[in-house]
Design a protein around this nucleic acid. Sequence first.
DNA 1: ACTCTGACTATTT
DNA 2: CAAATAGCCAGAG
Length: 113
Amino acid sequence: MSNFFTNVYNVVKRIPEGKVTSYGAIARYLGSPKSSRMVGWAMNAAHTSSDIPAHRVVNRVGLLTGKHHFPGKSLMQQLLENEGIIVEKDQILFFDDHFWDPVVELPPFEIDL
DNA sequence: ACTCTGACTATTT
DNA sequence: CAAATAGCCAGAG
């Protein structure tokens, strides 16, 4: 397992229910602000894992860009709504209120147990 | 080693 | 304000 991916997974796993974060935020937390695409890609590799709440990871404006990678049509949106997050037209409403920044919420570099 | 690709983001048109 | 452009980096063939 690459450390980068593992870190991404661990961060995503630590996202509290009802909260969401962005690929960029995770990438920044891992020390590579420009690796946001890798975060998304890591999700792609892990989205099958039930342990990874990939639906809580959206792009920087709260848009469900990765919803098409989920089984079904609006599974991602429904999962989010199930956690109390309001989604409309693939866009999270009150995104700022639900945003969870690992850089702020998580200790600086204690990922990957 | 090289090229292509992608669930991003910031900048520019 | 919507769409194109350019950095960006790691994995896969």
